[in-house]
Nucleic acid binder design. Structure first.
Length: 606
RNA sequence: GCGCUCGUAGCUCAGUUGGAUAGAGCACAGGUUUCCUAAACCUGGGGCCGCAGGUUCGAAUCCUGCCGGGCGCACCA
C-alpha cells in the first residue's frame, strides 16, 4: 500500500456504480476525485460535469443518483456518507479506515508511486544548471538557478527518471581576460590566502567598471581615457591569445586563478547540499565548437554573412540570423552550446535534455535547438529550456557599479547572524555551539531554498535580506522546518511518557478505533496529505517547484491547526492517542520527504 | 517595430487539462498560554481577477483586440 492509494480505494467502490455509458474506469474515477473546498464537506469530492454529456443528464441529478447508489450499498468499509451538493458528490470516509490507507503507509516509510506511463518517467534526463563563470562573483542571483536546477533533479528522480545532474562552467572568454587584466593593471600586492575566488570576482568587477568608465569618457571626447581603453583591450586580447596558445606566462596564471574559483564553487555546492554527476567546462568545447562550424559550413548548413558565419533561421522572425563565428574567426557562446549539445548526446544516451537558464536566453535556446535540428540531431526535439526570472534587490537590479551585489559568503554570514540574533540566541545556554551552527545552517538553507522556489519560475524575486531572515512565521521555509521540529518533539515527548505507536497500526494491519480522526483539524490535515503526491507529480511534470512548495505549506498550516486543537498526549482514550500519533508520524514523514525534494533539511529541534 | 513575459486584496503572491462562495502571507483591528515548541492558533475588515469583446451550462483560467510594467532582438556571455 502506498500513501497515494486512498483515492484508488475510493474509486474502486465508486466506479462500479457509474453507468458504463460514462466510460470511466477506476483510474479515471480516481483521477477525478478532488478535495472539497472545506474539510467538513468530506474527504473527497467527485465532480459530475464530465458525466453529463455521456449520460444525457444534469450533473446535480447524477450526483443525487450516485449518492443513492452508495446508500443502497449499505454498510461499507470505507465510504461513510455520500452527499450530493449541486454538481458534486461529496464523499465522507470512515476516517479511521481512510487513515489505514493514507497515514499508515506514510508513517511506515512508504513513498508514493508515480505512474510509469507518465512522460517523465523511466527516462534518462540531463539537467544542466548552475553554470557560474569562474573569475566572477557568485551571488544571490546564482542561487535561484542552483536551487531550481537541484530541485528539478530531485523531483524527476523521485518520479521515476534517471537524472544526470550537469554543470557547465564558464572558465574561458572575455570575462577571464578582463579579470586577469585587472589583476595586473589595478591590483597591487599579493592575493589573499582565503576566499580567493570571491576576491577574484571583485577584481573582475573593478576591472569591468574601469573599462566602462574609460570607454564612456573616451566616447565623450577624453582622449587619454580613449587611449587607455584601447591599450587595455589590446592587452586583454594578448592575454586571451596567450592562454589559448598555452604560453606558460598566461596559461599557468589562468589555470591557477581558475582553480580559486572552482574551489569556491565546491564549497558553495557543499554548503547547499548540491551534487553534480558531470561537470562540463567551456574550455573543453571551445575548439570542438569551431571545428563544428567548419564542418557544417562545408555541408552547407551554415552560411557566411558579412564576414561572419551563422545559420539562417527564418522560422524565428525577429532574429533570423544566428551567428556562430565572428568575422575575426572566434566562436561565440552559441558555438560552444552546439558543441556541448553534441557531446551530451554522444556521451550519454539521454532521452531528454533540460537547460536551466534565465528567461532572457529563451530566444537563444530556440535558436540553438532549431539549429541542432537542422544539423541533423533528432535529439533536438528532446531539448527544453527552463527559464526563470531575475532576482532583484529592494533597491532594484543588482549591479557591481551600484555596489549592491550580495555575494554568497555575505549571504550566508548575514543570514546566519540575523537568524541567530532573531531567534537562536535563546538556545545559547541550552545547546552546544555546534548544535546552534547546525540549526543555523539548516534554517538558512530553508530560507534561501524556499524563498527561491516558492515563487513561480516566471515571477521576479525580490531578495530582501531583512525579510528573509525575519522568521516571524508565515509562508517561509522556516515555518515548514518548525513544523517538522514540532512533530519530532511531540513524538519524543510521547515516547517519554511510554506512548508509542502500535506496530500494527503503523503497518496498517489494524485500523484505529472507529470514530477517531474526525475532528475538523484532523480531517484538514489528512486532506493536505492526500493532495501531496499529486502536487509532486504536477511539479515534476511541469518543472515548477512552486506547486510542491505551496502544498507543503498547506500541510504545515494544517498541522499547526491540528496541534493547536487536538491534544495528542494528554488523552484518556489510548485509541485516540494511537490515531493521533499515527497522524503526527505520517505528517512528519510526508513533510520531511517533501522538503527533501526541495533540498531543505528537516531539523529535529529548532 | 517584432518576440517573450507579467498585470488577482494596501504590499508580496497562489489559483495550469475551464467547475462549489476567488485563496494565502505580510500589514491592520481584536482574541487565545495552569496544557504536547506562541516561529503557533482563532476572528474581522478588506477584490469591476488591467480594460473591452468573444467561445458555453459555466471564464481569473481558453480565443481576439487594446492598455500598462519588465526583458530580448548580428560579431557580449
Amino acid at each position: 500500500m502506498r500513501p497515494d492509494a486512498l483515492a484508488q480505494e475510493v474509486a474502486k467502490l465508486l466506479a462500479p456504480l457509474i453507468p458504463e455509458a460514462a466510460g470511466l474506469d477506476v483510474d479515471a474515477v480516481a483521477a477525478l476525485l478532488t478535495p472539497p473546498p472545506k474539510p467538513e464537506l468530506g474527504h473527497f469530492a467527485f465532480p459530475c460535469f464530465r458525466l453529463a454529456k455521456a449520460l444525457r443528464s444534469a450533473p446535480p441529478k447524477i450526483a443525487a443518483e450516485l449518492a443513492a447508489a452508495i446508500a443502497a450499498l449499505g454498510d461499507n468499509p470505507l465510504i461513510a456518507t455520500a452527499t450530493p451538493a449541486g454538481p458534486y458528490l461529496n464523499l465522507d470516509l470512515h476516517a479511521h479506515e481512510a487513515a489505514r490507507h493514507l497515514l499508515a503507509p506514510w508513517a511506515n516509510g512508504q513513498r508514493p508511486a508515480f505512474p510509469s506511463s507518465g512522460p517523465s518517467s523511466n527516462q534518462k534526463v540531463m539537467i544542466e544548471y548552475s553554470q557560474p563563470n569562474t573569475h566572477k562573483g557568485f551571488h544571490v542571483g546564482h542561487m535561484r538557478n542552483l536551487c531550481l536546477g537541484d530541485c528539478l533533479v530531485r523531483l524527476l528522480r523521485a518520479t521515476g527518471s534517471e537524472v544526470v545532474a550537469a554543470n557547465y562552467l564558464g572558465d574561458v572568454g572575455t570575462h577571464v581576460a578582463k579579470c586577469l587584466w585587472g589583476l595586473e593593471a589595478l591590483v597591487s600586492g599579493d592575493p589573499p590566502t582565503q576566499a580567493r575566488g570571491e576576491w577574484l570576482g571583485q577584481v573582475y568587477s573593478q576591472a569591468a567598471i574601469q573599462l566602462e568608465d574609460w570607454d564612456e569618457a573616451g566616447k565623450a571626447g577624453d582622449e587619454a581615457a580613449a587611449a587607455q581603453y584601447t591599450a587595455a583591450r589590446e592587452r586583454m586580447s594578448e592575454i586571451l591569445r596567450g592562454i589559448e596558445a598555452r604560453d606558460p606566462a598566461y596559461h599557468d596564471l589562468w589555470m591557477r586563478t581558475r582553480q580559486w574559483s572552482l574551489d569556491e564553487f565546491e564549497q558553495i555546492y557543499a554548503w547547499c547540499g548540491v551534487e553534480f554527476d558531470r561537470v562540463f567546462y567551456e574550455s573543453e568545447v571551445d575548439e570542438p565548437g569551431l571545428k563544428l562550424v567548419d564542418e557544417f559550413l562545408a555541408k552547407g548548413v551554415f552560411v557566411e554573412s558579412r564576414g561572419a558565419v551563422g545559420i539562417e533561421n527564418p522560422e524565428i522572425e525577429h532574429m533570423p540570423f544566428f551567428m556562430l563565428r565572428k568575422s575575426d574567426g572566434t566562436g561565440l557562446y552559441a558555438t560552444k552550446d552546439l558543441a556541448l549539445a553534441r557531446m551530451k548526446f554522444e556521451e550519454f544516451g539521454i532521452d531528454r535534455s533540460i537547460y536551466v537558464v534565465d528567461a532572457r536566453q529563451s530566444d537563444h535556446f530556440k535558436q540553438v535547438f532549431l539549429t541542432l535540428k537542422k544539423m541533423g540531431f533528432d535529439q533536438a526535439e528532446l531539448c527544453e529550456h527552463v527559464g526563470y526570472e531575475m532576482v532583484e534587490l529592494p533597491d532594484g537590479a543588482m549591479s557591481s557599479r551600484k555596489g549592491n551585489v550580495i555575494l554568497f559568503r555575505a549571504l550566508r554570514e548575514q543570514l546566519g547572524a540575523s537568524l541567530e540574533a532573531n531567534y537562536f540566541h535563546k538556545f545559547t545556554d541550552e545547546w552546544t555551539r555546534e548544535q546552534i551552527d547546525t540549526a543555523l545552517h539548516q534554517v538558512s538553507l530553508g530560507a534561501i531554498k524556499y524563498g527561491m522556489l516558492a515563487r513561480d519560475n516566471n515571477q521576479k524575486i525580490v531578495f530582501d535580506l531583512a525579510k528573509w531572515s525575519d522568521v516571524q512565521g508565515g509562508d517561509g521555509g522556516a515555518t515548514l522546518q518548525y513544523v517538522c521540529a514540532r512533530t519530532a518533539s511531540l513524538l519524543v515527548k510521547a515516547q517519554n511518557r511510554g506512548m508509542t505507536l502500535d506496530g500494527a497500526v503503523r503497518s496498517g494491519e489494524r485500523a484505529t478505533q472507529a470514530g477517531t480522526l474526525t475532528e475538523v483539524a484532523e480531517r484538514g490535515l489528512m486532506q493536505a496529505l492526500i493532495a501531496l503526491p499529486g502536487s509532486i507529480a504536477q511539479a515534476a511534470q511541469s518543472l515548477r517547484p512552486s506547486i510542491l512548495c505551496s502544498q507543503l505549506y498547506a500541510v504545515a498550516k494544517a498541522y499547526n491547526r491540528f496541534q493547536q486543537e487536538c491534544n495528542v498526549i494528554h488523552q484518556d482514550d489510548p485509541e485516540v492517542v494511537q490515531a493521533r500519533l499515527l497522524l503526527v508520524q505520517a505528517t512528519r514523514e510526508a513533510l520531511s520527504w517533501g522538503l527533501s525534494l526541495v533540498g531543505i533539511p528537516a531539523p529535529d529541534r529548532m
